[in-house]
Design a protein around this nucleic acid. Sequence first.
DNA 1: CCGGTGATGCCCT
DNA 2: GGGCATCACCGGT
Length: 193
Amino acid sequence: MKRSDKEKILIDSTFAAKRLLGAYLIRQIDKHRLIGKIVETEVYHQDDPASHSCHGRTKRCEIMFGTPGFSYIYLVYGMYYCLNIVTGKEGEGAAVLIRALEPIKGIDTMKIYRKMDDIKNLTNGPGKVCQALNITNKENKKYLLDNKSSFYIKFNNQIQDNKIIYTTRIGISKAKDMLMRFYVKDSKYVSIK
DNA sequence: CCGGTGATGCCCT
DNA sequence: GGGCATCACCGGT
């Protein structure tokens, strides 16, 4: 898929959150290639009181207002990183949070980073995704649509609409009833059903 | 299985 | 200084 086609997918954040389901997140670390299929996403945008971008540009969330396709990574609860894909048009403060993956490749390496063996528990949460793929601040503001990169998104395996569940977000206190969370129906690897 | 809780550092309506 | 887009662990069922 061409880079411009990928950017088109990301212009509409809700569409992007659905279309990212089934896509591969690929991360090359030295000789290890870690691959996960995205199975759960959440939309955050400027008009949403739970979004970092809701009060306009700040140093931390500035990237959300930029070109779609970049990573937005932040530290939460002092311990865990969360990975977002910037979406929306230039100037719109939006992103899609990657909440869960199905581990595909490099599972042994993910187990080491996660310090545990249980496959179903490796990447079923946004903090776990970053831990399993060793994603930290260093990966913030990277362009994720370039197939030659060591950290990128590969769109394929589009999930059919009737296999996507559309529901409320979790793990937030503000605007918790907004329907902004998507996951693959029947996946064993989502955070909460 | 469930709910409660502590850890821990950065950000800033 | 208050609050967090989380997780693992603990104790009671």
